[in-house]
Design a binder for these strands. Structure first.
Lengths: 144, 144
DNA sequence: ACTTCTAAGTTAGCATGTTAAGTTAGCTCG
DNA sequence: CGAGCTAACTTAACATGCTAACTTAGAAGT
């Protein structure tokens, strides 16, 4: 048996994530937290529920994460004027700065990696997206 | 900003792993543990150190995992006749059975997913492998 | 207005990853 | 042969994912 696709995807992702964690060490945030901040800042994920969906994780994860990020002064979580039991999420100035810096750094590094590997970026990215969409489809089918 | 490659890879892998966990629920093992057993059974990863390398995780992870798997009667870990402070890892009959069943199950499911998505399996798998190799290369460079 | 439903968030407990710092078994060399 | 080296393994403490079960704030129906 050769190492199969799901195994290699698992390994590739785990290593990319750890590399990202190392790059962010100076900023004292993990890659997960950086992603959360990015989604709040760049995609306007404005409640914890929305952020959980965007990150693809559960509400308890986000609940704990927002607690930490608020404590670190990167995120603000006030009551949402839209009503309901919601928290409106916004970035502080420090949070905005971190997202800006981090995105630039990752872009450069990933470009270098892909260039070195010779893999056609656009095609690979498109395939990844298509697999993700199919998986979503299967999961929705299965849940019915 | 569109959702970038590393983000989608992260999401795709996380979901594949969770789907695999659900499929293995009846067998009472997680996907991580299944992978460990597979590497012992199919690749002859015969010490904890070798298994850690093959899985791409650290020794403490493997140490804890082998403890659990041994307790579950899926794995045996005796002293290694090769000497040194090593444990020789081998599958029990139950372990072998699990690996056989699991691999067949995953193969079918992944084939269905990839077919549904229309992504060319061989090419995508080759690209993934190449990226992994490049990342290894970068990490080795960086460590020097 | 009171009950009830629903959606959002929290808390508790588990799994499995990490790093840092021990421990143990055999090898090497003066 | 004893001191120190190295490699493999373990232990401890932390991060962050999950599920299950609870709380809270509005909305809806009578």
């Amino acid at each position: 048996m050769e190492r199969n696709l799901s195994f290699n995807l698992h390994a590739l992702t785990a290593r990319l994530d750890r590399a990202a964690d190392r790059m962010l060490k100076d900023y004292n945030v993990s890659y997960s937290r950086f992603l959360a901040l990015t989604l709040v800042g760049e995609f306007g994920a404005s409640t914890q529920r929305a952020l959980a969906d965007a990150l693809g994780v559960t509400e308890p994860s986000v609940s704990r994460m927002t607690g930490v990020l608020t404590g670190a002064g990167l995120l603000e979580a006030g009551p949402d004027p839209a009503g309901g039991n919601r928290h409106r999420l916004t970035l502080t100035d420090d949070g905005k700065q971190l997202v800006t810096d981090g995105l630039r750094m990752f872009e450069q590094r990933l470009a270098a990696l892909v260039a070195h590997s010779g893999v056609p970026y656009a095609e690979y990215a498109a395939h990844t997206e298509r697999l993700l969409a199919s998986l979503d489809h299967f999961e929705r089918e299965g849940a019915k």
